[in-house]
Amino acid sequence: MLVKQLSIFLENRSGRLEEITGILAENNVNIRALSLADTSDFGILRLIVDDPDKAEKVLKEKMITVSTNNVVAVVVPDKPGGLHSILVPLRDAGINIEYMYAFLAKHKDDAIIIFRFEDPESAIKVLEKANVTLISSQELLNM
């Protein structure tokens, strides 16, 4: 149930993000979800794309610093308390979240939350036990 995420190092300069989106567009890679974390000097762009292997390859060819990580995608009911109901079992199990970001699924009433855990395997076990719906890469791309 792990989903492949691309992480890209970006200097905090104008035009840097545009260069990345340009490379992906040229190679017909579709971005499904993204999050940009930043400091005063640099940022890290995290992307879920339809073809992560191809995206990694074309970015590396352009000398972009990119790495892949495994994240967990969780379906959350798009209503008050939705996210909270997922965080409770994680807290109870002492699972630490490195970071997370959310997007809305098309044509559905659910939100998708991408979690980066230090220990994704244990997190998945806890979430499955709590009957949280996890989605695979394939499902994510088809949404």
Binding site: Q5, S7, I44, T65, S67, Y99, R116
Partner: peptide, 15 residues
């Protein structure tokens, strides 16, 4: 320069 070897997707590790 941030090489692949030292790059991390977590800001705190780079910092």
């Amino acid at each position: 320069e941030v090489t692949e070897e030292i790059f991390s997707d977590e800001i705190k590790k780079l910092e």
